[in-house]
Design a protein around this nucleic acid. Structure first.
Lengths: 286, 286
DNA sequence: GTTCCGCATGAATCGATAG
DNA sequence: ACTATCGATTCATGCGGAA
C-alpha cells in the first residue's frame, strides 16, 4: 500500500477546481483569520471575509464525498471592542450553499496567548465547525474513545475531595466523589469540547494547530486509505499527520516558502515506506 | 444598608416596561431555550425564537445602565441532525438594535447529559454571550482572579494516598469559593472558558445554572449595592446569589410556582439580617 | 465520625411508531 | 408528508444508607 501525499503550490480556489467531485473524505483546515497574518496572506478584511471564503466553500462542497465531513477551525477577532460577526455570517451563507451545520466543537486551548486588557480576558477557545453534505456521514466514534489513563488523569485534576463538607461553603455541599466510578472503567466517549494545548515549537509558521487536533478528527471521520484535504495547508500539520496515519492527503498552499518546507518534510517519510514498517516513527521531525 | 430583592410575578416583556431606563448594572439570564422546557414554559419554536426574544432584548437595552453588561446564557438545539441557527441570528439582530457583542464566554459543563448517537457526541458546552451598550463598561477583573501554582498537584498526591482532604473549592479553574485560602499564592486572570458542573440539586426544581455561574459574573461586573436583573428568574439562583453578595436585584418569573418558591427562599435570608450574623447559614435550603 | 456503595436523574438526541 | 410521543443510550453528580 502506498500513501499518496499531494502537496500543491497555488491559490486555493484555483487548485480546488482541478480536484474531482466527491473525492475527499475529510476536509480539515484553519484558514487565515480575517486581518491576521498580514505578512503572509495579505490579510482579508473582516467585512470581506465571507465574500472571500464562499467561492472556496462552494468548491469544497463539490469535492467532498457525500459521506464526508468538513471541519473548519476559525475564530472571530475583536474589532473596536466587539467580536466580529463574519464567522456566524459565514455559517448562515454556507447553509444557503447546501452545507449542513452539523455541530460546533470547542477547542479549549489550555495555554492560550498571554496578555491583559481592561475589558476582556484571554481568549482561550476556538470554534471547530463541523459541516456535512448529508445527515448521514461516516463517523468512527470508537476510534476516539478516551482510554482509562488519560481519562482518569483529567478527572483527577478537577477532582475536589473525597471528604464532604456540608454548609460552610456558599455554594452548598462539596464534592463527594467516588473514585470507583472511573477506576475500572475502560473507555468513555468524548464530548464536543476538546482540551488541547497549542504547540509553540513551530517558530516558522504563524498559526498552526497541534498535531493532536487533525489527528483526532482524522481518526474520527476517516479510515486508512481515505483522503484528507487541507486547502490552507500552512506548515502541513494535517498532511503530515494524515500520512503517518496512512491516509492519502492533499495540501494546498500559496506561499512558496511553506510549500517548500512541507515538501521537504514529507519526502523522508515516503522513503521510509520502503524500509521495514515504522508506523509512528520519528521520521518526520516535529 | 439594606439590600432590596424584588421578585416579580408576570410576563417578562410587560414587567420590563415598568423598570426605569438606565437603572440596572448587570443582566444575567438563561431564557427558556427553543422547544425546551415545554412542560413549564410552553416552548418557543426555533423558527419563532428570534422574533420572540427581540422585543425583550429591546427593553433590556433600555433598562441597562450605559456602563452595564448583559450576559445571555443560551445554546442552540439540534433539529434534524443540524444545529439550529436562531442563536447566531439573534446576535445579528441584537446588534441591529444597538447592542455590542463584546465577547462570548464558553461554559464547559463537566457533567453533560448522557447519551450516545451515531453521528454526534454529548453536548457539553453552552454559550455565555456578553453584550454591552458601550465600549466602555464596568469590569472588576481582580475580583475573579484565580490562584495558580502547584497546589492542585499537591492535593492530587494527597488524594491518591487517601489522606483526609478538606477542600471547599468547587473546581480548580476559576470558581473556587474560598479563594482567601490561597492568599499569598500567585494569582492569575481567568480566561473566557469557564468550567462548571451543572447542579442536580433539589428534587423539586432544577436550577438553570449552578450558583457559581452568576456569582462569577456578579463579582466581575458589579460592586456591592449595584443592581442585578434576571428577566427569566426560574429557580431564582441569580437573585439568591445577588442578595448574598449584597447586590440589589430584580427577578421576573411567569410561573407562579417558581415565583412562590423563590419568594419563600428569599424571605428567611432577609429576616436573618436582624439576627446575629450568619452569613452563609442554612437559611436557604439548597 | 469517616468512608464507601448504590441509585436516581438531568436545558439531550435519534429513530421508530402513532395519529 | 408532518408533528407528537416514547424507548434506548449514557455518565457525572448528589444523596442516602451501610460498613
Amino acid at each position: 500500500m502506498e500513501i499518496k501525499t499531494d502537496i500543491i503550490l497555488g491559490d486555493s480556489y484555483e487548485v480546488l477546481k482541478t480536484i474531482p467531485s466527491d473525492s475527499v473524505d475529510l476536509i480539515i483546515t484553519s484558514p487565515p483569520y480575517a486581518d491576521q497574518r498580514k505578512k503572509t496572506y495579505g490579510g482579508i478584511h473582516p467585512d470581506k471575509y465571507v465574500e472571500w471564503f464562499l467561492p472556496i466553500s462552494e468548491e469544497l462542497l463539490r469535492v467532498l464525498k457525500p459521506t464526508g465531513t468538513f471541519i473548519l477551525n476559525i475564530k472571530e477577532k475583536v474589532v473596536k471592542g466587539e467580536r466580529s460577526t463574519y464567522v456566524i455570517e459565514l455559517i448562515l451563507e454556507m447553509k444557503k450553499q447546501g452545507w449542513l451545520w452539523t455541530e460546533e466543537f470547542i477547542w479549549h486551548k489550555k495555554n492560550s496567548y498571554p496578555g491583559k486588557w481592561p475589558n476582556r480576558f484571554r481568549d482561550s477557545w476556538e470554534r471547530l465547525l463541523q459541516f456535512n453534505k448529508n445527515r448521514k456521514f461516516n463517523m468512527y466514534q470508537e476510534e476516539v474513545m478516551v482510554p482509562v489513563g488519560d481519562w482518569a488523569k483529567t478527572r483527577l485534576k478537577k477532582l475536589s475531595q473525597r471528604d464532604k463538607i456540608r454548609d460552610e461553603s456558599k455554594v452548598g455541599s462539596g464534592f463527594g466523589k467516588n473514585i470507583s466510578n472511573w477506576i475500572g472503567r475502560e473507555k468513555a466517549y468524548p464530548t464536543n469540547v476538546l482540551h488541547l494545548a497549542t504547540e509553540c515549537n513551530n517558530k516558522k509558521h504563524s498559526a498552526a494547530f497541534p498535531e493532536s487536533l487533525p489527528e483526532w478528527f482524522i481518526k474520527l471521520f476517516t479510515k486508512p486509505e481515505d483522503t484528507v484535504l487541507d486547502p490552507f495547508m500552512g506548515s502541513g500539520t494535517t498532511n503530515i499527520v494524515a500520512q503517518r496515519m496512512s491516509r492519502h492527503s492533499i495540501g494546498i498552499e500559496i506561499i512558496p516558502e511553506y510549500y517548500q518546507m512541507v515538501k521537504e518534510q514529507i519526502r523522508p517519510v515516503v522513503l521510509s515506506l520502503f524500509e521495514p514498517k515504522e508506523k509512528y516513527g520519528k521520521t518526520n521531525n516535529k
